[in-house]
């Protein structure tokens, strides 16, 4: 009588175990990465009601971030500027431009322009821009090279583990307070000593307490 199982069937239990291990690991890695903000949030680049270019305004014209986001140093929010700020220049420059019409309309009719929020934090997170700027955390650290963006997209995951990475090891992310909006700033060779000095002088002790960000 012929054998029911061929000889390779002897390897089946081992192969099955191996396959289960590989599949299990793949499933875990898949969820780990593809369900995380590194994948779901980074690169979010909504279409805005106005084709506003940071590349032109912040880079070519060299306008400081704070010209428009004027409350960022004193407020939790880095305010989206009122259209009044746009009209400071655009009353004269390119006033008839097709692309500018939503701004002009908003200004004339006094109705807010509906920008689409790019950087969204969960509603149970109470982030404050002003304290980060005072400590010397630059704009580019969390928002990337906005001065090179034609359309703003999210550059970092803004996840809790990502926040905590910096809160636990802030040294590489601190810069002199007068360099916070400088998009080209790079840590110098003496960054470690500089960070130690700045932390001491400004009393920087990043919290890792739950209640630091959640209430």
């Amino acid at each position: 009588m012929a054998q029911i199982f061929p000889p390779w069937a002897n390897r089946l239990p081992v192969l099955t175990l191996l396959a289960a291990a590989v599949l299990g690991l793949s499933a875990v890695s898949f969820v780990w990465y593809y369900f995380s903000p590194w994948y779901t949030d980074v690169g979010y680049r909504p279409t805005q009601p106005v084709f506003y270019s940071h590349l032109l305004h912040a880079d070519s014209l060299g306008i400081d971030c704070r010209y428009c986001h004027s409350d960022v140093e004193t407020s939790p929010t880095a305010n989206i500027p009122p259209v009044q700020t746009c009209m400071n220049c655009h009353k004269i420059i390119k006033a008839d431009s097709e692309r500018l019409q939503p701004v002009v309309q908003s200004y004339v009719t006094k109705t807010p322009l509906k920008w689409v929020r790019v950087h969204k934090l969960p509603d149970f997170v109470y982030f404050d821009h002003s304290i980060h700027l005072r400590a010397g955390v630059g704009c580019a650290g969390c928002h990337g090279r906005v001065n090179e963006m034609l359309v703003v997209s999210q550059a970092k995951p803004l996840s809790m583990s990502w926040c905590l990475d910096c809160h636990r090891h802030p040294d590489d992310h601190l810069r002199p307070p007068d360099q916070i909006t400088n998009m080209d700033w790079e840590p110098a060779a003496d960054q470690v000593e500089f960070a130690a000095k700045q932390k001491h002088e400004l009393g920087i002790e990043p919290t890792v307490d739950c209640s630091g960000c959640h209430r």
């Binding site: 779901t40 949030d41 690169g43 979010y44 680049r45 969204k120 997209s153």
Partner: peptide, 10 residues
């Protein structure tokens, strides 16, 4: 993978 731009909300 990450940093691929998308217009769809996260």
């Amino acid at each position: 993978a990450r940093e691929s731009p998308s217009e769809k909300p996260p």
